[in-house]
Amino acid sequence: MTRTINLTLKIWRQKGPEFKGKFETYNVRNISTDMSFLEMIDIINEQLTLDGKDPIVFDHDCREGICGTCGAMVNGRAHGPEKGTTLCQLHMRHFSEGDTIVIEPWRSRAFPVIKDLVVDRSALDQIIQAGGYISVNTGGAPDANTLPVPQEIAEKAMDAAACIGCGACVAACPNAAAMLFTGAKVSQLALLPQGKPEAAKRALCMVRKMDELHFGNCTNEKECEVECPKEISIVNIARLNREFMKAGFFSTVP
């Protein structure tokens, strides 16, 4: 059933990385409960534009929960209160008449604020650059079916590979660790036979890079798993730890 609700929003506004930010309050009326969260921000922005004010800058793109571009802390929860949901897929039917909603950018030392709700997540790309791939040049691959992968293993690899790189795990973690993000990629590739030759090097290099970029350590808080919009399991962190330990003992990688 379509209803409309009235809300009070407290939204973080910050002109740029060097500026101090603050919360601004916006009262919004007649928000359809079928609307998505970002469509609600669109409406505020249309009004701000017509009022001659600066619209709220926020990252978003596919609006179907797969590109990983959007994200904000909503009442202290990464991507808002719904389980397994990105901000763009969060609908206003999960809020009630008269609610106050606090919206902030991801908070993490490794993700500096660029403007308003937008942060710089290029550190995640740098972690992948440290080894989040299989080193295979285009052109020389054998027939795809020469390498059977047990269905169960393929499914586990796919569970890990579902990560959209949004950064919610980092934002939700009290230590601002990127262990779930890194663990998901290390797991996907370590599970598959194709990824085994580089498994040790990958685990060592990606963990080192993570430390170098000021991400924190994992202390088993499990906040990342709870907030991950793709419900990536912390089993992947355990797998990362195992790969890392194994590599530390047996690898000849310097």
Binding site: A141, A144, N145, P148, P150, A154, L189, L192, Q194
Partner: peptide
């Protein structure tokens, strides 16, 4: 056909049958 070969080599977790083939 080359695309599928290359993507499997890259570690794309394509769906598989019980025998492990694509």
């Amino acid at each position: 056909n080359n695309i599928i070969d290359h993507c499997v080599a890259q570690g794309i977790p394509f769906a598989r049958d019980y025998g492990g083939l694509l």
